[in-house]
Design a protein around this nucleic acid. Sequence first.
DNA 1: AATATTATTGAAATTAACCTAAATTATTGA
DNA 2: TCAATAATTTAGGTTAATTTCAATAATATT
Lengths: 220, 220
Amino acid sequence: MYSKAEENYLKAIFKIYEKTGKHVHTNAIALHLDNSAASVTDMVQKLSEKNLVNYTKYKGVLLTNEGKKVVTGLIRRHRLWEYFLVNKLGFGWDNVHELAEELEHIHSEELISKLDEYLGMPKYDPHGDPIPNGEGKYSMRTQLLLSDLVAGQMGTLVGVGDNSSSFLKHLDHLKIGIGTQIKLISKVDFDDTFLVEVQGKEHNLSAKIASNVRVKMFDR
Amino acid sequence: MYSKAEENYLKAIFKIYEKTGKHVHTNAIALHLDNSAASVTDMVQKLSEKNLVNYTKYKGVLLTNEGKKVVTGLIRRHRLWEYFLVNKLGFGWDNVHELAEELEHIHSEELISKLDEYLGMPKYDPHGDPIPNGEGKYSMRTQLLLSDLVAGQMGTLVGVGDNSSSFLKHLDHLKIGIGTQIKLISKVDFDDTFLVEVQGKEHNLSAKIASNVRVKMFDR
DNA sequence: AATATTATTGAAATTAACCTAAATTATTGA
DNA sequence: TCAATAATTTAGGTTAATTTCAATAATATT
């Protein structure tokens, strides 16, 4: 199996690639992992040796299929543990990331498939992110950003774009969570904020918040 | 916090001390952990620096109170995870040791107290071993070895002295587990075996098995 | 195209956890 | 009691994952 360090590099590469869709530069990885660029070069060469990434000097890396498989496994474990921590042990959704980060490095296939079954094979984690199945497949929901709605439209919150504790705590405070129904009353151009209605109450949300809330439109 | 390696050394020292009750020699630890004696000396000196053991050159080590506290925490985590794996996820009792060995190194106090609560604060793990509470206290049951019973006496199996997979699988095969009632019919001096009755069936158990089965006598 | 900026690399050093081989100390049994 | 044997420690290395720092390559700016 791969070491914790290797796995964390692969995850970082995956995450950065998700945003940019281009070759992932060593510097970007160094920034993300708070490591020196020199360490990253070392590790990236090692990962390339093991055929987990394709590496071109000065250009950056891309995950190979093998590398993607490793990352999908990590994400599956991470999100299943988050689901367990929140829905069985009663942790808050703002509080489980670090623990899942440790638990995901336990590799037993049997453990994960039994945990999956015990949890009822959930499709989404507590932040609305999809949980890959045993084969690495996961469903993407058609979803929009709250900031992309048109005034008057209504949606159900299905995910958040940022899992930072401070953001999630803020949502908790507003009594907004997964499943909450949100109606966009209007966009306020003047200060680029969003007037919404949640459970009968009006709130004024910043653009930063609105662009980190993912909603699903009602089927009609 | 302490590293995995340090914790494993402390656990080994604890286990060996449990059996012998004397200073724990370098070689005994090396044997237990399958390390070289020289590595053990290194680590033991480090643990001594950190006041987790008292170390006398050429004589061996004893755990300090601090060291004992660390070990009790490890045992608590290990046994709670075993309980979870067996009673929630459906693992067999012969199959959980290695996984618990990994899970026990996750240090979150919140995780363990929430897990404990979720499990209903169990007092014994799936092998009948006591689970220390948050303060490190645990109850010892008055228990006997099956091999110490007198012919005709009956007891309930409450624990096993060996958690090896092969031993536990053998017990499974005989349909003997925690809670099983066992009656000693007679000791067979000739070949040092034990004739017992379990659920209406007679079995002839070796001395090795009988001395690794712990029973509690019926209260009358 | 020349220069400035940013990214990448190589070399040398560090730390934790190991190892082997050699030296030292303890034990024991003739 | 003292020499042989066993156990332990020391000394000196190895490996994985880091770091820092200086040199070099690629890219961007004027």
